[in-house]
Computed example of a mutant assay.
Amino acid sequence: MAPAATLPTVDARPQKDPRSIPAVPDLDCESYDSEDVLTQDIIEGLKNAGLCVVRQIIKPEVRAKISSELRPYTIDLAPTPGDFWPKETRKLTSMVSKSETYALELVGHPVWQTVGNHFMTSTLKDYWNSEEITTSVSKPQLNNTQGFIIGPGARAQGLHRDDFVHHNRQPYAESHTLGRDTSIAFFLADTPTTRQNGATRFIPGSHLWDYDILPSEEAAVQPELQPGDGVMMLSGTYHGGSRNQTDESRAVWSAVTTRGWLRQEENQYICNDVEKIKKLPIWLQRFCGYEMSKPFMGYVDLDDPIKVLHPGMKGDVDQFY
């Protein structure tokens, strides 16, 4: 019998100093006068470390309203099935139609939307359409929405990347380039998130590693969060929930953005109450998936899918390209 294959450890990374782990950017929203500057700093932090902590990105009164709208749905949640998550974990889904405040203020947060647009917009340049050179831009879409309620005694989750759902594999890169990532996540703390109650472990810089490299627990860090603090993370970054050693649950709300031409991890068309989706701003309805990914993807009867929700609406005249 052939010996079992042994995966290389973190020290096998093909770079000059394989033990060099970048610091996690930790930004305080209240220290910024300009939303544009904050957004740019988040983008630079994500490119370098694969994640960025953003303090008080959601104001206390807004965070409290999101919580009050979502918490009733968590009361009767059954333990999450399977062994990917600890049995003490309860997960809430289909959240865009469960909380209008979550949809508008977290999914629709302008900083988050700009960051997602930066990393997840796809541009197909200079392809021939008959005798014309054409460029098509595919805008990002909502990938999934999840609430995590991690109960006392929950074990640590294994370190993993989230982009395996889109079959993404990448080689080692010296620095980040657009196109490497298939999704980006935004986690919002609803309760204090500490090392004792299982704050998520991340390996900064692992979004640039060769995907054959085994994650190392020694390289992981655990940012602690207060309610209203957020973490944004590129999906190629190794991370995992940690052991909850307290007698209280920790709660985190999240939203994930992906490319317009990839399949959504959570089927937004089926899982949400369509009548509630129709009450959201049109741009947010489109972000949920009721929009063409140019060129040509996602049409309904050769027309703009937003018309399924609003039959009398004028569609995108340039919807195909």
Rank of each mutant, 00 (worst) to 15 (best):
Ser249Asp: 14
Val274Asn: 14
Gly228Thr: 07
Met232Ser: 02
Ser249Cys: 13
Arg250Leu: 09
Asn197Cys: 06
Glu218Leu: 08
Asp247Met: 13
Val252Ala: 05
Trp283Asp: 15
Asn244Lys: 03
Arg243Pro: 05
Tyr238Val: 00
Gln222Gly: 00
Glu266Tyr: 05
Ala199Leu: 05
Leu188Asp: 00
Thr182Ile: 01
Asp210His: 13
Ala199Arg: 03
Thr257Trp: 09
His207Ala: 09
Val231Lys: 00
Arg201Trp: 09
Thr258Asn: 14
Glu217Asp: 13
Lys278Asn: 09
His176Val: 05
Gln264Ile: 05
Arg201Lys: 14
Glu266Met: 11
Arg243Ser: 14
Asp247Arg: 11
Phe202Cys: 07
Cys271Ser: 14
Leu234Met: 15
Gln222Tyr: 01
Glu275Asp: 15
Tyr211Val: 03
Glu218Gln: 12
Glu217Val: 03
Leu178Ile: 13
Ser254Leu: 11
Ala189Thr: 04
Glu275Ala: 15
Arg201Leu: 12
Thr237Asn: 07
Ile203Tyr: 02
Leu262Pro: 04
Arg180Glu: 08
Asp229Glu: 11
Arg201Asn: 11
Asp190Thr: 03
Val252Cys: 09
Asp247His: 13
Ile270Gly: 08
Gly240Leu: 08
Arg195Thr: 11
Val252Thr: 12
Leu280Trp: 10
Ser206Ile: 06
Gly241Gln: 03
Val221Leu: 07
Asn272Gly: 10
Pro223Leu: 00
Ile270Arg: 15
Phe202Met: 07
Val252Tyr: 02
Gly198Met: 04
Thr193Asn: 03
Thr237Phe: 04
Gly228Ala: 10
Gly230Pro: 02
Ser183Thr: 08
Asp273Phe: 03
Gln222Leu: 05
Asp229Tyr: 05
Gly230Lys: 04
Leu262Asn: 13
Tyr211Asp: 15
Leu280Ala: 10
Asp247Val: 11
Pro227Ala: 12
Glu265Tyr: 04
Ala185Ile: 02
Val274Arg: 15
Asp190Val: 08
Arg180Gly: 02
Gly205Pro: 07
Leu225Gln: 00
Asn244Thr: 01
Cys271Asp: 06
Pro204Cys: 08
Glu224Leu: 10
Arg201Cys: 08
Thr193Asp: 01
Pro223Phe: 00
Asp210Ser: 12
Gln264Leu: 06
Pro227His: 07
Ile282Lys: 13
Gly241Cys: 03
Val231Ala: 00
Glu266Arg: 10
Pro215Leu: 06
Arg259Ala: 09
Phe186Val: 03
Arg263Cys: 10
Gly228Val: 06
Pro281Ser: 09
Thr194Gly: 02
Val231Trp: 00
Thr246Asn: 08
Val274Ile: 15
